[in-house]
């Protein structure tokens, strides 16, 4: 069963990350790399995403005119930093992977249709 894991963070997480020493940040990157390595057989795709400040969003107004705005869809502090496409037996396996995600923050697990 396919799911997408979306790796999210909010203002508090971003702050915590910014205040990390270079050493700690390096250690964090290593933990993340290890997570990808450990779960290699279950991950079928994914990417780290560019900063939300470089995002562009298309919305529709009530009269169905598309509106283009600078910035991400999510308002305020919340950011999707990256995603992984996974293929596992069921939700419990997806949960196990998500719970092991080192940076913490939040991980959304969304089933892939079809």
């Amino acid at each position: 069963m396919k799911y997408v894991l979306m790796f999210c963070s909010d203002g508090a997480d971003t702050e915590r990350f910014a205040r990390m020493s270079d050493e700690d940040r390096l250690a964090q990157y290593e933990r993340v790399a290890r997570w990808f390595a450990d779960n290699r057989s279950k991950i079928t795709g994914g990417n780290q995403l560019g900063f939300p400040t470089n995002a562009t969003t298309v919305r529709w107004s009530a009269d169905e005119t598309p509106l283009v705005t600078d910035g991400p869809f999510l308002e305020g502090n919340e950011v999707i930093g990256g995603y992984a496409e996974i293929d596992v037996a069921d939700l419990d396996e997806a949960l196990r992977m998500a719970k092991a995600w080192p940076p913490r923050g939040a991980v959304e697990i969304r089933p892939v249709l079809g």
Binding site: M1, A89, D90, L91, D92, I109, P111, L113
Partner: peptide, 14 residues
Amino acid sequence: TEARIAYRMPADDE
């Protein structure tokens, strides 16, 4: 059904 919550006993660590 759609998120495939499995119909089984949880594993020991869960």
